[in-house]
């Protein structure tokens, strides 16, 4: 893409920069990890060549256990289903990485660039657990939802993939067209805790 091309996250209109400047000290902290590269990867987990190919392209083992994830400096892979993974990479690198995957994979597989289709919200803070539990029916207790676990679930009247990165740290992958709805939901649901936005 040319440098002049303007790029905007689905939550551009929420003006997170302006909200961050308010420096609110809230029980819920929100950051949009925007404009990352998102790749949907499909393939046969029982095929050693597929696993090898992914490893060589991403320098990371494909997480095979249900609801698990793997991460290195530049890449996170989330298990979505027995034959589906979400690969999250730095923004703008997605095309190159898609190319790398296509090069190193053989046989039946699929890669789709869905970087425009979704965005990641990072939610943390002492009240983030209760906030999420308002609209997520899944049990987010550390015993059932440990760090690095990832689930696809219903979030209010939308869907999300949720990954835990710390006791009080979560990543939410949400769809672009629902982003405004989730943002409305977040503002409403975090009222009692205070919402601070960081960049």
């Amino acid at each position: 893409m040319s440098n002049s091309a303007r790029v905007e996250s689905p939550l551009e209109h929420a003006d997170f920069a302006g909200l961050a400047a308010l420096k609110i000290n809230g029980g819920v902290i929100l950051r949009e990890a925007k404009l990352l590269g998102h790749l949907n990867l499909r393939g046969n987990a029982n095929d050693p060549d597929f696993l090898k190919g992914v490893k060589s392209a991403l320098d990371l083992d494909l997480p095979l256990a249900p609801c698990s994830s793997a991460q290195n400096a530049n890449t996170t892979i989330m298990w979505l289903s027995p034959d589906e993974w979400l690969v999250i990479v730095d923004g703008v690198t997605e095309a190159a990485i898609e190319g790398k995957l296509r090069q190193s994979l053989r046989g039946h597989f699929a890669v789709s660039d869905i970087s425009g289709a979704q965005t990641m919200l990072e939610i943390s803070g002492k009240d983030c657990l209760q906030l999420l539990q308002k609209s997520i029916g899944y049990d987010l207790h550390l015993d059932s939802f440990p760090i690095n676990k990832v689930i696809g679930t219903a979030l209010a009247k939308s869907s999300a993939h949720i990954r835990r990165t710390g006791e009080y740290n979560f990543q939410l992958i949400i769809r672009r067209s629902f982003a405004d709805y989730i943002w409305l939901w977040l503002q409403q649901s975090s009222k009692e805790y205070g919402l601070s936005v960081t960049l």
Partner: peptide, 11 residues
């Protein structure tokens, strides 16, 4: 049987 755990009906 694929996620290998219990989930709520709404999912």
């Amino acid at each position: 049987p694929y996620c290998e755990e219990y989930r709520e009906e709404e999912e």
